[in-house]
């Protein structure tokens, strides 16, 4: 990692945040939004920063508790708003554009919060790496005028982790945790019950020490992806949990042989595009 480049990017981030004047942050408690919140607090002060947690069935309860804990640790003002993406047919039908409908709802709510609190700019935690993935949610952000300071500064995930580590943030090595709907195969309707199945299954696995894991929901099938580095060590634990995973409503429990790959369900889109 190029130290001079890292410092330059961080300096750019601070200038971008100052340019925002005051910020309403789409805050999930993940690596990116926690780091963004910390930088915003440093550059703008707590009176010009508000973190907003969007709550819905696709946001795990454990993650909400962690997000609040981190906010309290940082002295970060925060509020929660309920989002209603489950009322959008574009979201529920789970097309590859699903994230657009979710983010459209989220940013609509945050824009209203920003107005109520007199905050100048709504920002999100998208980073430079996100620009390379299938991210229909980014279109919603653009349409709502949401800025992405980390991405604008060119900060990639590994750089954000390193800066987080130096800042003493507890999230620096936290696994990424996108919304639960991302575990449902495209075309499989998003329902609160399926989201709850995924949440319960992943919590079960994490509590047994499987750290970076995704339970991909394919209808009656749970396909488990574990980070390649811990896959073989975790396999016996997963086997032992099969009866409990079945009890959550999965008829079949499968272990993906290649392990966790970011955006694995998007691989289907790539194949469709190529064919």
């Amino acid at each position: 990692m190029d130290e001079a480049l890292l410092q330059a990017k961080y300096g750019t981030l601070i200038r971008i945040l100052e340019d925002c004047e005051s910020v309403c942050i789409g805050y999930s408690g993940g690596v990116d939004s926690v780091f963004l919140a910390k930088a915003a607090l440093l550059s703008l002060g707590a009176e010009r920063v508000l973190a907003v947690i969007g709550r819905s069935p696709s946001y795990p309860a454990a993650q909400f508790r962690a997000a609040v804990e981190y906010a309290e640790l940082l002295g970060l003002p925060w509020v929660e708003v309920s989002t209603h993406e489950m009322e959008s047919s574009g979201y529920v039908t789970n097309s590859p554009s699903r994230c657009y409908f979710c983010k459209d709802e989220l940013w609509s709510r945050l824009a209203a919060v920003a107005t109520r609190h007199g905050l100048h700019t709504v920002v999100d935690g998208a980073n430079a790496d996100d620009a390379h993935d299938h991210r229909p949610g980014a279109r919603a952000a653009r349409e709502h005028g949401v800025r992405s300071p980390l991405q604008e500064a060119g900060l990639a995930k590994d750089e954000i982790r390193e800066l987080s580590r130096r800042a003493g943030l507890p999230t620096w090595d936290q696994p990424a945790s996108p919304c639960l709907a991302s575990r449902l195969a495209y075309g499989l309707a998003v329902t609160p019950e399926r989201l709850a199945q995924v949440e319960a299954a992943e919590m079960l696995l994490r509590r047994r020490g499987v750290r970076e894991v995704r339970v991909r929901h394919h209808g009656d099938v749970a396909r488990i992806e574990v980070a390649p580095g811990e896959l073989d060590a975790a396999a016996p634990t997963i086997v032992a949990l099969v009866p409990r995973l079945r009890a959550l409503g999965f008829d079949r429990v499968l272990l993906d042989v290649e392990g966790y790959r970011r955006g694995a369900l998007n691989e289907a889109l790539v194949q469709l595009t190529a064919s």
């Binding site: 032992a240 009866p243 429990v253």
Partner: peptide
């Protein structure tokens, strides 16, 4: 096929 997986059939 898009994915290859092991079918887990039994507990411990």
């Amino acid at each position: 096929f898009r994915y290859v997986a092991i079918e887990l059939v039994d507990g411990p």
